[in-house]
Simulated assay, not measured.
Amino acid sequence: MIKRQADVTRTLLIRAAGDAISEAGATTFTLDGVAKRAGLSKGALLHHFPTKSVLVEAVVRDLVDQFWNDVQAAALEDSEPNCRMTRAYILTIARLGEKQNRRWGGLATAFVVDPSLLHLWRDTLRRYQQAVESETQACESAWIARLAVDSLWSAELFGTPSIGGTSRAKLIERLVGLTYPIAERDKQAA
């Protein structure tokens, strides 16, 4: 499928805005800076995104969509159906790079400044939650794993002391292990 030039330009602007937000924050980045970063005029930017808030919403929407597409792709690769979405969620967070985490961290300020943007994340989280609940009725250890990875991700987003390197990798492996049925977990531990 051939992308229209307008779609390519919008994507370029959204990515440039994401980079600007990750460096300057959602409240202090400038439209001039985004246009310059994208190699376009400010008029071209305003043609696609008439206000800063419309551009920020597009960045949030793009990042959220990208995140959940990655979760879905990871789930499709998983042959164990029980708690597949939770494992996919954990692995997606584990695979986020520093650049993506800086974007999420920058957008966290946007959520505070404009709480209406938070609905994009909440709505997709509700859909995810429904998928988790439909795949398993009661798996306490999977919920514990999910909440633990959320805590790890929050620490990484806000730059608070956390763990890295092999300790982080071991923690992720352990959290993923908590999502398997008990018999499967016993095999993995052996």
Score class of each variant (00 low, 15 high):
60 V>N: 00
96 L>H: 05
99 K>M: 11
55 L>H: 06
81 P>S: 10
64 V>C: 09
63 L>I: 06
100 Q>T: 09
93 I>K: 02
84 R>W: 03
86 T>M: 14
80 E>P: 09
74 A>F: 10
96 L>Q: 12
71 V>N: 06
62 D>A: 14
82 N>Q: 13
101 N>D: 12
68 W>A: 00
62 D>S: 12
66 Q>T: 10
97 G>E: 11
72 Q>K: 12
59 V>M: 03
61 R>G: 05
60 V>H: 02
64 V>F: 09
63 L>F: 05
63 L>G: 03
87 R>S: 02
99 K>E: 15
55 L>Y: 04
71 V>W: 02
68 W>P: 00
60 V>F: 04
80 E>D: 15
92 T>K: 02
71 V>T: 01
80 E>Q: 15
60 V>D: 02
101 N>W: 07
76 L>T: 09
74 A>P: 00
98 E>C: 04
59 V>P: 00
101 N>I: 11
87 R>V: 07
72 Q>E: 13
63 L>A: 08
82 N>C: 13
65 D>E: 13
62 D>G: 08
70 D>C: 07
101 N>E: 15
100 Q>I: 01
97 G>K: 11
92 T>F: 02
98 E>A: 12
66 Q>I: 04
90 I>T: 01
61 R>H: 09
70 D>T: 10
58 A>K: 08
90 I>K: 00
58 A>H: 08
75 A>R: 13
80 E>I: 14
56 V>A: 09
59 V>F: 02
92 T>V: 05
76 L>P: 00
81 P>C: 03
56 V>T: 13
62 D>N: 13
93 I>T: 02
83 C>Y: 02
79 S>G: 11
59 V>R: 00
95 R>Q: 11
81 P>M: 10
101 N>Q: 15
55 L>T: 05
100 Q>C: 02
92 T>H: 07
66 Q>A: 12
77 E>A: 15
78 D>N: 13
99 K>V: 14
92 T>I: 05
79 S>A: 15
94 A>V: 02
86 T>L: 05
88 A>M: 03
83 C>G: 10
76 L>M: 11
85 M>V: 08
96 L>R: 08
100 Q>F: 03
59 V>W: 01
77 E>D: 15
96 L>M: 13
74 A>M: 10
83 C>W: 01
59 V>I: 04
83 C>L: 09
55 L>W: 05
78 D>P: 04
99 K>R: 15
89 Y>A: 06
100 Q>E: 09
98 E>S: 11
88 A>E: 03
84 R>V: 04
60 V>C: 05
85 M>H: 11
77 E>H: 10
80 E>M: 14
58 A>Q: 06
95 R>Y: 04
101 N>L: 15
76 L>Q: 12
57 E>H: 14
82 N>P: 04
89 Y>R: 06
83 C>T: 05
82 N>T: 14
69 N>M: 14
55 L>G: 08
68 W>I: 02
83 C>F: 08
57 E>C: 06
73 A>I: 10
93 I>Y: 01
72 Q>P: 00
95 R>G: 10
91 L>M: 12
96 L>K: 04
60 V>G: 01
73 A>M: 11
58 A>P: 01
84 R>H: 07
80 E>F: 12
57 E>K: 14
81 P>H: 11
88 A>L: 03
71 V>F: 07
80 E>C: 14
